[in-house]
């Protein structure tokens, strides 16, 4: 890809200083994207976005929650959040049957919808202004899914914040994520308990609120 030009809408936004951004919540299945989306929507609007489950591929259609205002002292940012289906390179209905006791017919349907969900999540990349990339900090962050998503965001010059989730768990290691992706801001959080959400909101205002940065000048 060559140079990336701002859209007219973005230029208008810049001129009039309107701070509104559509933020996609991305990541592998089960990392806590919907838990985070719910946490954000609950904090900012008292609403829920979607259902959470320990069964992977719970979210199979992207869901948007609009006009959420983040405020932090003097600065603020209004966002739409898009909770996307988890991105995977494989979907095995047998996993639902064996590991979660889902009956075969239901498992097949879930798997079919999950594959469509992955495609939908990828399509949404064309329509977001920034990304919260959620990772489970109890797991190895250096996966093809994470590396591929990050590579794409870099190529599109989209701002990204990595949310190192599940830090309430004893085995979590957000430091591993930081050292794996030192070029991106990493905010350790627990979407479940709400721990450190304020730091995430501040980072979001700072990172998603400013005009699109041209990385090569930095």
């Amino acid at each position: 890809m060559g140079f990336h030009f701002s859209s007219l809408a973005r230029i208008i936004q810049l001129l009039f200083g309107k701070k509104h951004a559509r933020i996609g919540i991305y990541g592998a299945p089960n990392v806590g994207k919907t838990t985070l989306a719910n946490r954000i929507a609950m904090d900012l609007a008292g609403e829920v976005v979607g259902t959470v489950s320990d069964v992977p591929h719970e979210t199979r259609r992207a869901k948007t929650k609009k006009n959420l205002k983040i405020e932090n002292g003097t600065s603020s940012l209004t966002i739409d959040i898009v909770d996307t289906p988890g991105i995977a390179t494989k979907v095995d209905y047998m996993e639902f049957v064996r590991n979660y006791g889902i009956d075969e017919e239901e498992a097949r349907r879930r798997a079919k919808e999950a594959t469509e969900g992955v495609i939908e999540a990828i399509r949404w990349l064309d329509n977001v202004d920034g990304v919260l990339l959620v990772m489970d900090s109890t797991e190895d962050p250096f996966t093809q899914v994470n590396v591929t998503i990050l590579g794409n965001l870099e190529a599109r010059n989209l701002p990204v914040i990595i949310a190192a989730n599940k830090i309430d768990m004893e085995t979590s290691s957000p430091a591993t994520i930081k050292s794996a992706f030192p070029q991106h801001p990493v905010v350790p959080i627990s979407a479940l308990t709400g721990h450190n959400m304020q730091a995430l909101y501040s980072k979001m205002i700072e990172h998603f609120g400013k005009r699109k940065k041209r990385r090569w000048i930095k």
Binding site: T115, V118, V147, T148, N152, A155
Partner: peptide
Amino acid sequence: SSERVKLIQQTM
């Protein structure tokens, strides 16, 4: 990475 995304899409 953009080819890998297409590969994932087609795999799905």
